[in-house]
Simulated scan of single mutants.
Amino acid sequence: MAGDEKRFKSAFDSLHALAYFAPEVDAALTGAGLRPGRMPYFAGRSAAMGAVGPEVVAATFYNFNPEVVARVIPRAWTLATPEQVLSARLDGVDRALTRLLGDHVKSDDVAEAADLAREATTGCSGEGRPLYAAHAGLGWPDQPHLVLWHAITLLREHRGDGHIAALVLNGLSGIEALVTHVATARGFTTATAKLTRGWSDEQWAAAEAGLADRGLLAPGDGLAEERGLTEEGVAVRDRVEIATEAAARGPWEHLGPERTSRLEELCRGLSRRVVEAGAFPDGVFNRRRT
């Protein structure tokens, strides 16, 4: 089931991630009082945990520079309560999905996918998964397209929490996870990773040097994606992926292969619709998790 889960993740990923790019969501969050920039992302995704401090957000988001998080959290909670942020986020997602899916937002496909995805979430476990557990504690929306989005949010955060556990188990800090992922040359470039995750040139260089000293990153002066991982570095990344897949099996084992396949089919078609409708800037889905 692990290979099926990984394939399925690629089918539904965009249906959740559009919340980080859609102008409707950004407008709703800034309309609730948040400042433009990074604040809507950090506050919008962490609000389910309540008015937590920057340490908690950095720990659960993992590969962002904690210094960047601290610039907007906890200030965000002085501008809008977590409850206001959650309400605005869902309203923005509602508007975004309605625009991107058009008349199809009320289709039988959306309703069926919502039912299947919600059922899959009953196979998730909250143990050791704080970001998933926080979102699982929220009430379910009423409309099928929002049920689908919320269910996929739960599935993504469930998988993400397990991925962080795998990184910790294999001795990779947040920035080291990012550097080793860049070194696979299958996602972020060095420039994009530093820019979007907020790491300075000095911090990045120190992480590269530490990984090279540990024998995980190939020696040299080039960019991480040019140098690549050593044999041991590849082995570490492989162990992370295997552990991540193993920890994410619960929802799909509960749903079973036939219904999982049907949900994949439905979500792939819906994902294609939102991408073709312009939900993301060019190249966004060449960027995979770390």
Rank of each mutant, 00 (worst) to 15 (best):
E67N: 14
G228D: 06
A32C: 12
G50C: 10
Q203M: 06
A279T: 10
F64M: 12
L155A: 05
C124P: 07
A224H: 02
L270A: 03
S107V: 07
G53Q: 06
A185H: 13
N286G: 12
Y20C: 00
L146Q: 09
F8Q: 01
A59K: 08
R99D: 00
D221F: 06
L178P: 00
N63H: 13
L172S: 01
M39V: 06
A113Q: 01
E176K: 03
R249V: 02
V56E: 05
R237I: 10
L90Y: 13
G123Q: 05
L34H: 11
F61D: 01
Q84A: 12
S107G: 09
L146R: 04
L169P: 00
R272D: 14
T190V: 13
E83T: 13
A47P: 04
A248F: 00
A279L: 12
A70D: 03
P141L: 10
Y20A: 01
V240L: 04
H104T: 12
T244P: 02
G3I: 04
S261N: 09
P54Q: 02
E253Q: 13
G31V: 14
V25I: 09
L178G: 00
L18E: 00
A28I: 13
E176R: 06
E226I: 07
L79N: 10
F280T: 03
V275W: 00
V110S: 02
L90T: 10
H150R: 15
D238L: 05
V240I: 15
R239K: 13
E119A: 15
A183G: 03
G33P: 06
V56D: 00
P74A: 08
A248E: 02
E253S: 03
S107Q: 04
L15N: 00
E208W: 05
T30I: 09
P40G: 07
V240Y: 00
V85T: 12
G171R: 14
G102W: 09
K6H: 08
T121K: 01
V110G: 02
A206P: 05
R259P: 05
P82Y: 15
A191L: 08
E67S: 14
A96I: 07
T98M: 08
G123P: 11
G160F: 08
A207L: 13
G269T: 11
S173C: 14
E127V: 15
V284L: 15
R288M: 10
E119R: 14
K9L: 14
G256V: 01
T196M: 13
T121S: 08
A133S: 15
E253K: 04
T60F: 05
L266K: 04
E176L: 10
N63C: 09
D103Y: 00
E24H: 15
S14T: 13
C124E: 07
E226R: 07
W252E: 00
G210S: 12
H254W: 09
D108W: 12
V182T: 02
A246N: 08
L18P: 02
R186Y: 04
G210V: 01
E276P: 03
A247D: 11
L15K: 10
A277C: 04
A120F: 07
D213N: 09
R156K: 14
G44V: 09
G50E: 13
R75V: 04
G174Q: 05
S261R: 14
P281L: 09
G174E: 07
Q143I: 07
A218I: 03
